[in-house]
């Protein structure tokens, strides 16, 4: 289908334009998660002790921040993608889903670059890379992408009609990061809950699909382990969100051009 070519062209447009406009260019994809990881490392090794076992804190946090930033940034950009290109949407017909999908695709490029740096880190700290468990990586990534695209479709479509949806989503994403085991180990959650007698609520923590996704990334990358026990649930949720999101998007698609 010719529109597949449109997707490729549009994705490359986003990537090229972004890299041409910034001084750091492609380096920005590395600097962002790295800077965050450094700040968190400084805080959680010098100010507040955070026990991450044998894994150095910086690798612990960076390995989670890379997929997290993919999540956060691709949702933020795709939610705005329709409104940002309203001129085009109101004048030419093409399948509108190309816009949010292309934003996610462009962020995947950043993800790959940041991931290469992660491998560099792990080698530096003497951690094994390309272990057998890494076979799970595509599964985790695809599940995460389903969730991202689904939220992107819902958010971008709604944002056309209600312009503050994007602000709400950005805020939720910020808070969401703290509900996900990125800067702290999930064992901390377990311990704290048990201390307060709420041990049985541990499962509720994993209602957040990103929790088991991030944990799975860590298990697979750093501990030569498998998927997190709650991963199946997340996969189901992610696919459901994608299906619903796409359906909603296509239903609202023809009204986009009328709202200007």
């Amino acid at each position: 289908m010719a529109h597949k070519d449109l997707l490729i062209s549009w994705t490359s447009r986003i990537v090229k334009a972004r890299y041409q406009q910034s001084v750091l260019g492609g380096l920005w994809a590395v600097v962002q998660p790295l800077a965050l990881a450094l700040i968190f490392t400084a805080v959680f090794t010098l100010v507040v002790r955070m026990d991450t076992g044998e894994i150095p804190y910086i690798v612990f946090s960076y390995s989670a921040l890379v997929p997290w930033l993919l999540f956060e940034q691709s949702i933020s950009s795709s939610v705005l993608s329709l409104v940002a290109n309203m001129g085009l949407v109101s004048k030419i017909y093409f399948p509108r889903e190309v816009l949010p999908i292309a934003e996610v695709g462009a962020r995947l490029v950043d993800f790959v670059i940041a991931f290469v740096v992660l491998i560099g880190f792990m080698v530096f700290y003497g951690l094994p890379v390309f272990t057998l468990s890494w076979i799970y990586l595509p599964v985790i990534l695809v599940t995460q992408l389903c969730l991202v695209l689904g939220i992107g479709f819902i958010g971008s479509a709604l944002n056309v009609f209600f312009r503050d949806v994007s602000h709400v989503i950005v805020l939720i994403l910020k808070i969401w990061m703290y509900a996900t085991p990125i800067i702290y180990p999930v064992t901390l959650v377990q311990t704290q809950l048990e201390n307060f007698g709420y041990g049985r609520f541990y499962g509720l923590y994993f209602l957040n699909p990103m929790s088991s996704i991030i944990e799975s990334y860590r298990n697979v990358l750093l501990h030569n382990g498998g998927l997190n026990e709650f991963f199946g649930r997340s996969a189901l949720v992610s696919v459901a969100v994608l299906v619903f999101g796409y359906w909603l998007f296509k239903r609202l698609e023809f009204k986009f051009a009328d709202v200007v």
Binding site: A17, Q20, I92, F94
Partner: peptide
Amino acid sequence: GAGFHPDLTGRENVYLNGTILGMSR
């Protein structure tokens, strides 16, 4: 010139605009 991005070259924009208009690469 729908879809033209100012920072991209004419060549790149031909592909961009062309695919928007429905041509394959």
